[in-house]
């Protein structure tokens, strides 16, 4: 048994479990073996003083769901070894919230152009500082703060 830090629940009764960040991979593995076979999503929340990663798990046989949370300062273990679908969700969380996933096979931006500066869903992201994207000849995006040729 992996120790649980604390438990609570959402307003409609989905169990929320807090786990220490070192234990997240073994804990989720344990949960997967218990029958939580679907990873619905991974999301990140910026609480200004720390970041949180949320895993929504669903057991399709027992029809139960839990939310596993962990507090971090910007890095957690990747769970791509457990669920293939975690790949995109982790890339998205890295892209928008800026949480690094250790041992992720391909941790690149997914929604924004590669080379974008900053992570927009952080609360301190400067919304008024515009970035401009252009297309290089090899088909890759280029990003700069300078209006120049970009859009």
């Amino acid at each position: 048994m992996i120790p649980v830090e604390s438990e609570s629940s959402t307003k409609n009764g989905i169990k929320v479990i807090y786990v220490a960040k070192e234990n997240i991979l073994p804990f989720l593995k344990e949960k997967k073996e218990e029958g939580f076979d679907t990873l619905l999503m991974i999301s990140g929340v910026d609480y200004k003083d720390h970041l949180e990663v949320l895993y929504h798990l669903l057991s399709s046989k027992n029809n139960t769901r839990i939310i596993v949370k962990t507090k971090t300062d910007g890095e957690v273990d990747s769970v791509t070894s457990l669920w293939k679908g975690a790949d995109w969700h982790e890339r998205e969380t890295w892209d928008l919230v800026g949480i690094k996933f250790k041992n992720h096979p391909n941790l690149k931006r997914i929604l924004l152009a590669e080379g974008w500066v900053g992570h927009p869903l952080r609360k301190d992201y400067p919304m008024d500082k515009k970035q401009y994207v252009n297309l290089a000849d090899d088909g890759e995006d280029t990003v700069s703060f300078d209006r120049g040729e970009g859009y």
Binding site: L40, M41, S43, V45, L54, H56, K84, G85, D87, W88, H89, E92
Partner: peptide, 19 residues
Amino acid sequence: PYRVRIRSPSFANLSSIPT
């Protein structure tokens, strides 16, 4: 709202394209 996180079905469905 402090955080609005959208679980979008098409996103997960689309990620199965390689397989």
